[in-house]
């Protein structure tokens, strides 16, 4: 009886704390979205008010859609983010599998070397990266960004995934070997599905920084036809005048694809087909 009540109280407190956190975290987003539907005057007069018939305006969205090739920026950002995530996950998982599964000379050393990338920010090497990109002719291509983001994401991906792969039952992999599955089939069909939650975690952690990055697009791919959304939105922020309607609308639009990707990955996070595999 007492335990039950105690439990209720705990649950209530936990949920209360979570709700408060959600409100705090969502507040800026909320402010951005409501203001993107208001005219310029109302944005500054009453930033927290909901748009009403008087202040409602789509001027921001109109500017955004007219100015520059917004859909192209969108597409570029999408290609870069999805492409980088794909390569991070596939190469990260393969490297992690090798480190976790095979005993070879220098295994630990290799793991440490890869982990080094977690501690050293890739931006330190920007000049060298730019030189390389110039020499390989990749400047102003989306590949430049995809390669850099893949390199940036791999260390943490390898680190997290190898930890999870060590936990996949040896017996399961060995059963596969005895049944004559190739190492690739074992990796793709047996191991990957079991570490899907970890893959989703890695994807979510990498997605947002890549989507939001301004640094590398500005340096490696500033040309009009390869601009990413974040870089494209910068045209509305001037040194002297900022078109706030446009900025807020652009930001609101930019949230949508990330949210879509997040929903896809979080479904994976939750789904557990692992139960019953072993034991």
């Amino acid at each position: 009886m007492n335990a039950v009540r105690q439990n209720r109280l705990n649950t209530f407190a936990a949920h209360g704390a979570l709700v408060v956190y959600v409100l705090i975290a969502l507040f800026p987003v909320f402010v951005i979205v409501i203001n993107s539907f208001k005219d310029r005057r109302s944005i500054f007069r009453e930033p927290l008010a909901l748009p009403n018939s008087e202040s409602f305006s789509l001027i921001g969205y109109e500017t955004v859609l007219k100015q520059g090739d917004f859909f192209l920026y969108f597409q570029n950002s999408m290609i870069v983010t999805v492409g980088s995530l794909f390569f991070i996950l596939i190469f990260g998982a393969m490297a992690a599998f090798a480190l976790a599964e095979y005993r070879f000379k220098g295994n630990t050393l290799m793991g440490l070397y890869l982990a080094l990338g977690i501690m050293i920010p890739i931006r330190i090497g920007t000049v060298a990266i730019l030189e390389m990109m110039v020499q390989t002719g990749l400047v102003n291509t989306l590949w430049a960004l995809i390669l850099v983001y893949t390199a940036q994401g791999l260390p943490l991906a390898v680190f997290i995934l190898s930890e999870f792969m060590r936990q996949v039952s040896d017996d399961l992999k060995n059963a596969g070997r005895i049944d004559g599955l190739s190492e690739y089939r074992i990796f793709f069909r047996l191991v990957l599905p079991l570490v899907r939650p970890a893959m989703a975690t890695v994807a979510v952690f990498n997605m947002i920084p890549i989507w939001n990055d301004l640094w590398f697009p500005l340096i490696l791919a500033p040309a009009e036809e390869v601009k990413t959304l974040t870089l494209g939105s910068q045209v509305f922020i001037g040194q002297f005048v900022t078109d706030w309607n446009a900025v807020l609308s652009a930001l609101s639009l930019a949230i949508l694809p990330v949210m879509a990707l997040y929903v896809i990955f979080s479904r994976q996070l939750i789904r557990g087909i692992t139960s019953g595999a072993v034991k």
């Binding site: 017996d171 069909r189 595999a277 072993v278």
Partner: peptide, 14 residues
């Protein structure tokens, strides 16, 4: 030409 049965069953979950 062998077959093995494991303590943890090790059935393919999918």
């Amino acid at each position: 030409g062998i077959a093995m049965v494991f303590q943890s069953y090790a059935l393919y979950p999918h």
